[in-house]
Design a protein around this nucleic acid. Structure first.
Lengths: 204, 204
DNA sequence: TAATAATTTAAACAAATGATTAAAACATTT
DNA sequence: AAATGTTTTAATCATTTGTTTAAATTATTA
């Protein structure tokens, strides 16, 4: 009981800070985030941030690691499976990304912005076995269209799937989209993008 | 001669600051940029920044205005032309975007990030006559595929075209792309994306 | 229960940062 | 050339910001 309650507060305070850091970092990015923003959001004394995480940078690093894993995990968990056929992989990538990003709309712009900002420090944190030349998904694409660099299709799938989340404010500007309308569109895209990608794979 | 030389230095100093601001803001974003970075990059005394532009925020506003115009201008200059047929518009959008973004690779991530950060202040600076429901490009898409919301095709074209620039560090991570290889890929995409979009427009 | 360890707090610090000031340097006008 | 206006500079200011400190509080152990 004594031990338990100590461990619980332990986790609770530390996790409160981390949760607040997730929220604020994703909303404002590393540079625009003040440690005081995080402390206030977490409802804790400012000094506790450094007590538990040493520095703003270390706390950010933990969040970034988590978020990169989340963002690339969707792709990497599917792409290497030898027993899934190309069409199914395409459907899975699109569907899973739209699900994950609907729950976490700020994820891609955050990850892509911060990857650009924090050069080499970041590139080592992900256990991304590079999708080199002999990964199953790439091989399948090469087999289907030997005349086209398979990276093209990866760009197309991710572009069509992820870009609407990255460019949400832009789409709101040029076409006046409402949240309810956007949700419908995303639901439609789950079905349509695989159809379109298959059409692209055939196009000559 | 006397007047001329004065005006020249005038423009020169102000333009030196603005050019430096373009470079640093685009590279690091608003919050990570220090006015001292800009002053150093411009090779001028820090106080001159405030002398010419009053504040960091006003200087940023001028750069942002310019960059939003550049980014959306590509699209808006093409999309409203009544005498261009759908296929040609698609080719023009893709080709022009790849040209502009090849010269300015940081443009889309900058514009999209800062649009998210600076809420309403930004949304008024662009003379974006919203691509509402009766814009020629949208009408043409509706006519071709009355069964599909035309915004889908806009997302697809921009996603396939712009996303590779936004996600460049990510593509470098998951597939090891070199600059020379990337240039070839972009050149290929100029031809391929219109073909793929046309295939999508036919797909059932 | 007393002693020890862990957590939390308020206050303060040092460095960074956007902005200002007053004087100097330079150019233009009379 | 003298007077006036403009541009540039070095120094300084006031705030903000990440971090630290030392004491207070709370929990754990002996």
């Amino acid at each position: 009981m004594a031990i338990r309650s100590k461990i619980e507060t332990d986790i609770s305070t530390e996790e409160k800070i981390k949760e607040a850091a997730r929220k604020v970092f994703l909303q404002k990015g590393y540079s625009a985030t003040r440690t005081r923003d995080i402390a206030e959001e977490a409802g804790i004394n400012l000094a506790l941030l450094n007590y538990y995480f040493r520095s703003k940078e270390r706390l950010f690093h933990e969040v970034m690691q988590e978020k990169m894993q989340q963002f690339f995990g969707v792709l990497l968990s599917i792409v290497n499976n030898d027993s899934t056929k190309l069409e199914t992989k395409i459907e899975l990538i699109v569907s899973n990304y739209i699900d994950v990003l609907s729950e976490n709309p700020e994820l891609p712009l955050f990850v892509l912005s911060e990857m650009k900002g924090h050069g080499d420090k970041i590139k080592n944190i992900l256990p991304v076995q590079k999708i080199a030349n002999n990964i199953s998904f790439i091989e399948q694409l090469k087999e289907r269209r030997p005349d086209i660099n398979p990276i093209h299709f990866l760009m197309n799938i991710l572009g069509m799937t992820v870009f609407p989340f990255v460019a949400k404010p832009a789409f709101n500007l040029i076409a006046a989209t409402q949240q309810s309308e956007l949700n419908l569109i995303l639901k439609e895209r789950k079905k349509l993008i695989p159809i379109w990608v298959k059409a692209m794979l055939k196009a000559k």
